[in-house]
Amino acid sequence: MHPAASVIVFTTLSGAGFGMLAWLGIDSTPSTGWGAFGYYFVAFALAVGGLLSSTFHLGHPERAMKAFTQWRTSWLSREGVCAVLALTVMGLYAAGLIFLGEALSILGWIGAILSLGTVYTTSMIYAQLATIPRWNTPLTSLLYLTFAIAGGALLTGKVTIALVLLVAASFVQVIWWKKGDTAFADRGTNLGTATGLGDRGEVRSLAHPHTSPNYLMREFIYTVGRKHVQKLRVISLTLMAAVPVVLLALFGANHFIALIAVLSHIAGVATSRWLFFAEAEHTVGIYYGMR
């Protein structure tokens, strides 16, 4: 799959932002006034910034409001609805903390659930696609949720919890990669089933329908960076988890160290998301004798 920058930015930033909102919502000793403003500003900037970025790849962003209508069947629509509800509820909760100095904890809990719900609906946009076997597993939702919760813990300064969750996220990531590497072959879809000619012999593509790449090939057949996959995986894990864990364990949570840890984590998640798209193989590639 073509790794579109807008979608990588969206899933990375929004994941961290909604993860942060979830932790803020369930905080039993929330900060108020300016302290609260700082946290909520960062969380909303990440979540909303990510959502806005996702509209950049649309052909007609001016019609985006229509995307709230089909929540009965469409995970993308559900994501939109869930995101708006989460941001509204958390916005009200934050306003209470910042301006009134009061925590309506029930609102916070509802907002936290909606925030994680948003991350889940995002993950289901990908996990629902039978056409991309690497994504088509419940593990994809687990991956998105653990990343969001770990990143949120890191961003809200819950150091001990963050250390545990970052290690957990690394494990989920490694398992997801391992399962993903054989997912396409396990599905059993090949040029034989794609053409219906497989029982007659070996099928191979003799000539493409067109001489240069079309939309389908640009969108679904992305082979750049495949030879560096293992190196990129190590880089991703190092930045996402290893660097923040070592920094926090050695130096504790002063502001400067925390900032480095957060930036490293986000860079690591972005690398993981680039791989998420770049490594994903779509069944359309089969028709071109490619993957």
Binding site: M1, H57, L58, G59, H60, P61, R63, A64, K66, A67, L76, I125, Q128, L129, A130, T131, I132, T189, N214, Y215, L216, E219, F220, H282, T283, V284, Y287
Partner: peptide, 23 residues
């Protein structure tokens, strides 16, 4: 149509193409 392309992702056969001029 907002041109999000998700339907083309969901189609296993490559039957849908996003028009590059019209979006």
């Amino acid at each position: 149509c907002i041109g999000c392309g998700l339907c083309a992702w969901a189609c296993p056969y490559g039957a849908r193409e996003l028009d590059q001029a019209e979006g």
